[in-house]
């Protein structure tokens, strides 16, 4: 699963398989981090400027 795993061999099979996998996991984690940070940011900015409903 990682390059330092016992079974890891830098062959085309590993590159395709884990390439695709890490790509998908990357998107998911990036998406989630973005969403959480943005939500935190929205909550913060909303509570600071205390303006009316922002949405």
């Amino acid at each position: 699963m990682f390059p330092f795993s016992f079974e890891w061999v830098w062959d085309i099979g590993h590159m395709i398989f884990f390439g695709g996998l890490w790509y998908a996991v990357g998107i998911l984690s990036a998406g989630m981090i973005y969403v959480i940070l943005k939500a935190a940011w929205d909550t913060m900015s909303e509570s600071i400027n205390n303006s009316g409903e922002s949405h």
């Binding site: 998406g31 973005y34 969403v35 959480i36 943005k38 939500a39 929205d42 909550t43």
Partner: peptide, 17 residues
């Protein structure tokens, strides 16, 4: 509020997921 915003933002990029 945090949950409210989280839900809203997630709807936004649900296409990617």
């Amino acid at each position: 509020p945090f949950f409210h915003h989280l839900a809203h933002n997630m709807h936004g990029i649900m296409v990617i997921f």
